[in-house]
Design a protein around this nucleic acid. Sequence first.
DNA 1: CTCTTCCATGACTTGAAGGAATGATCGCCA
DNA 2: TGGCGATCATTCCTTCAAGTCATGGAAGAG
Lengths: 296, 296
Amino acid sequence: MRGRLLPSLNAIRTFEAVARYNSFTRAAEELNVTQSAASRLVRSLEEYLQVPLFTRQSRRIELTDQGRFYNELVRDSLDLIEAGTVELISSKEGKGTLTIGMLPTFGTRWLVPRLPSFQEAHPEISLNIISSDGELDFTKERIDVAIRFGHGEWKDAIVDPLMGEEIQVVCSPKLMQGEHPIISYDSLRYHRLIRHSTRPNSWDHWFRSVGAHREDQQWGPTLEHFFMVIQAAVAGLGVALLPTFLIEDDLRSGTLVTPFTDRIAGPGAYYLITSAAKSELPRVKLFRRWLLGQLA
Amino acid sequence: MRGRLLPSLNAIRTFEAVARYNSFTRAAEELNVTQSAASRLVRSLEEYLQVPLFTRQSRRIELTDQGRFYNELVRDSLDLIEAGTVELISSKEGKGTLTIGMLPTFGTRWLVPRLPSFQEAHPEISLNIISSDGELDFTKERIDVAIRFGHGEWKDAIVDPLMGEEIQVVCSPKLMQGEHPIISYDSLRYHRLIRHSTRPNSWDHWFRSVGAHREDQQWGPTLEHFFMVIQAAVAGLGVALLPTFLIEDDLRSGTLVTPFTDRIAGPGAYYLITSAAKSELPRVKLFRRWLLGQLA
DNA sequence: CTCTTCCATGACTTGAAGGAATGATCGCCA
DNA sequence: TGGCGATCATTCCTTCAAGTCATGGAAGAG
């Protein structure tokens, strides 16, 4: 029965500290041992690996290339273990802080209004909600779970589909009372179309879906987040294409109106994403169960 | 002086093995110790963390949620260290195998013809060349260096710009002798335009750059790799837009011709990418130095 | 030239990890 | 149902890897 090929992990920890300080003496201080011990342990690691990790110039040491390679790697590993250890110790019995990385508009419009229910069910968990998009790295960032829009294309992650979206055309009621009320697809040519920068093709998609011919359009502003798009539409800057569930309030209050009844399926869906390790944390399990329950 | 907050790494290694086998007895076998030792080491880890990692039902043990979390993390860390250790031991003194993940066409047309020079300079390094695009993960895949096209947008990586590219229109000489020789931008309307699936907008880009008006074009096939695009153009399937340096041979031999003199700058550049750790390996340093030298 | 600093090393020490033996629990099966 | 085998826990004892202490040597600072 063969196990892992691993050197003494104690030696590795010592090596990492020595490399960090570039000094046996100071590393030994940190580890609360004598300089002698540090020296020996690193020496034994080098003998095990059959590779010199430091060049020694009597008073000064320097990592070899191979030492630098090994150090990068060992540091990453120890960082990982340390982070996990801290995490584990500080989150006993499901307590602690759940950090949610959410999309700005989805978060404020959909998630945040529902959070009180979670907080009530689990008052011992404090919530930390941060706005986050782009790449996900659960080890470096302090995010436990994230919400993303896409097609479930995340690797090395636990992915739960939350909901698709229907998108529809909306605008300020002012536009409907103006010179060119939007009564047909064709009348859109008299209005500026507001775009969302991370979904550049959504108007094309919409025109194709409703079977309208895409004439040369006037373009309005391109905005980065949906809440900006909503604001632009409310302000009458143009016509916007928005997910239905984000504008329910505006439609109810009348700050936005829908010229057409068409609601087409958006090109992707919202997902809850977490890492394999984080998904085992009690607070993450609880949140995931609660969130999926909210959809049923 | 405070150092890292780390439990006994020996205990961690034992925990990992126990979790893997779900058995103290079998883990102890792997580690060449007695069951007793494994049991007590894990117990001491639990005491240090103040967190139960296993539930014990006298004959059977099972990871707790927190144990599962910790195990995921510890396993990743040990995997990392193990991979690095193997790497280090097996690549003493710059020897070993350099694995290059290359883009298929760039590789065969540009890199491979130059590799004999590297092999001559460093005969002790054997080369392993694999075709690779998409996401990069230097820890899981066995790639030392990769070549990619883009804008230098890689995170947590060492990135060297290699070269930009000029793109130009090419076609088979047969097309020039046909009914509609390509003598002006407008005459392109009589021919099919071949597209590259990972660069869907390159024709738009080209028309805009040369200041031509983009009439409704006929589209030819969309192909996944440049070498397929080249073959399609040579076969007379249409007109292609290709990086100059990939078709030097074809232009020289006359299997492709250039209707226009325009050469516009492509939208990105080629980069050599490696990870911080890998970049310290002698074989990677040598390759990087050689490759950058080839460009000067 | 001397002092100080830092790493290496030989001789000795020690305690944490490990071994051996035993006890406890439980599922399996005749 | 009772005996067997498998597995984990625990106690007592041992051992050697890791550590200390003391010393030596090299080199930079002043």
